[in-house]
Design a protein around this nucleic acid. Structure first.
Lengths: 342, 342
DNA sequence: ATGAAAGCGCTAACAG
DNA sequence: CTGTTAGCGCTTTCAT
């Protein structure tokens, strides 16, 4: 059927009776080539079914037009948004995206880093697990001046850019909104206060309380894993508080959804008795009743921003120092679960 | 700090006073190389910070150890499962995974195919949008004998393998289960009967009815888009039927969740008045009350199977003809929404 | 405006 | 067991 043999620029050169260099230049739209010559070469290339050989070009140019993406778990819908943002920007800039998933395994993470390194990716975007990990496996990249962009990580490291959201502001917005709805006894449910991200959200939460001269009591904080059982238990603890809080900021939409259900099952009205603000803007928030007030976590935008930052660095636009930390705006999405006033 | 210059096998060869070929062979663990020599070469390579240059190797071997993944929309959580399955298998076999997303845009899909082609991916895995599209942009791959695996598509095309689930069986299982629960008047909600996938599910549904000598009435089928509004409307239509159906198979978990909510809001009890079976095994199914009986859609397994099939083809194990259609087992997950009997 | 020639780093006959 | 040699397809000085 088809010729199995790949067409090279030499084949084209022979056909048009010119040198390979000229063909190469024409194909790159080099200015110093005669317009007619170019057109002819393009036509012949098309007709012969030529496709450029990227490795040969890569080998020559010492770059791959590829960005590596390392994630520690390929499961949440946040991941899809992130990837989608990265893919869009990278593709538009002519870069391919290769993904690796370490499934939370630190060994595999190192292997993946090594593989990407060997594949000579031009840059790396990575989403580490939330617990503070050291960045040793990235030093290979740093040493070779391969740019790295970290997503949602507060690690500070020379030569590494981070794309984050303003977590303190998120906590602040959540609490402020609850206060504006008339809440005066605010609780917080979180999976842990040890991670920098969560700690910052809690700090913002307290800042808002302080600003409104509301005492923030540590015993109104419930630490619980983000599981169905954990959240039911957390909701139980909230309901046992005396007096019961009139507003709660829950650090995760799924947990918030379970809590709301638990509250309602126990005749605690939402938002009348207790107003609820979640976190993430998961699809679940619009499904449940009352619909869930939450803070949007802009996954796709973060992915896009990370890719854009990386590519700018690759193009030498904007030095690494210039923006070693990019903070994206988040927004409060007000729905029914928190609105006490009309 | 570090030498910016890349170490090549020549540098190693010079250091150990051997030829580059020997180094190359040693690094590949070639059997015909002295153990001691190997060890020495490995050590020196390690110490000099050598990393193999994949393009050079690719250029030489005419393959990239890369599989391309094309999806038509990078948003559902099904996508993440799929990718996760693909990534795992591909990575274990030493392949990198590059993803592209066409965002439902047919133009972009063709460009992506072209790009992957130019990047010389060794094989392609793709998930097309459900409406029957022609496969013209894949002929380039077929012509060059680059294997392609289609996911969840019933397209039949020479040289293209499909990984699918048994959709007819899914519909059959759903209906059979409802019948076993005592339902005798079964309805079906689907987004369309025109897609082959949905048509097959409906066929299975009817087959089960026929098997139990239950009349299947076309007017008990509701076609509605999978949106909140669409599903509320569909639920309304079901409730207006006279007599009201005592069981319904809804082709999507989200739609099923909305329907259940709508039923309950209208004092139609689930499962007592109407038993519900959904489809997909979304996370939402365990969250709602009653919890949702559904059919598991094995995304990760499909991804893994697709990758495995592809890699087998690349390795020459199992010809294309041998398994041009791989059907994965699905299972019914029984939860509260369908159980009438104790 | 075009060509000649070298070389990117690696692998695989072939030869010893 | 190891070395020699050629070449994968492309880009890019340096000439002309």
């Amino acid at each position: 059927m088809e010729s199995q043999k790949e067409i090279t620029i030499y084949d084209i050169a022979k056909k048009v009776k010119l040198s390979a260099s000229t063909v190469s230049r024409a194909l790159q739209d080099h200015p110093a080539i005669n317009k007619k010559t170019k057109k002819k070469i393009f036509d012949v290339a098309e007709q012969m079914g030529y496709r450029s050989n990227l490795f040969a070009r890569n080998l020559r140019q010492q770059r791959t037009m590829t960005v590596g993406v390392m994630v520690h778990e390929l499961n949440s819908s946040f991941m899809t948004s992130l990837l989608s943002g990265i893919e869009k920007v990278a593709n538009e800039a002519g870069y391919a995206v290769v993904i690796t998933d370490s499934s939370g395994d630190i060994e595999k993470e190192m292997t993946n880093a090594r593989n990407l390194f060997n594949r000579r990716v031009d840059g790396v975007i990575t989403w580490l697990s939330s617990n503070s990990k050291d960045l040793d496996h990235f030093t290979v990249f740093v040493d070779k001046s391969i740019p790295i962009v970290l997503i949602d990580s507060l690690q500070q490291h020379a030569g590494i850019t981070s794309v984050v959201i303003d977590n303190r502001m998120c906590g602040y917005m959540a609490a402020k909104h609850l206060i504006e709805q008339g809440c005066r006894r605010l609780a917080h449910i979180t999976s842990s206060l040890k991670t920098p991200v969560n700690a910052l959200r809690y700090k913002g939460f307290r800042d808002a309380l302080a600003e409104h001269k509301i005492a923030s009591k540590e015993r109104l904080v419930v630490v619980a894993p983000v599981t169905e059982e954990g959240s039911i238990e957390a909701a139980g603890k909230i309901m046992q508080m005396n007096p019961i809080p009139d507003g709660v900021f829950i650090n995760n939409d799924f947990a918030a959804a379970v809590c709301i259900r638990t509250f309602l099952e126990n005749k605690v009205k939402v938002p009348q008795d207790i107003a609820v603000v979640g976190f993430n803007n998961d699809a679940i928030g619009t499904f449940i009743r009352p619909t869930l007030t939450t803070i949007n976590y802009p996954g796709k935008e973060m992915g896009a921003a990370a890719a854009r930052t990386l590519i700018n660095q690759l193009n030498g636009v904007g030095t690494i120092e210039q923006a070693s930390n990019l903070t994206l705006r988040t927004e409060l999405i007000v729905r029914q679960s928190s609105v006490k006033k009309r």
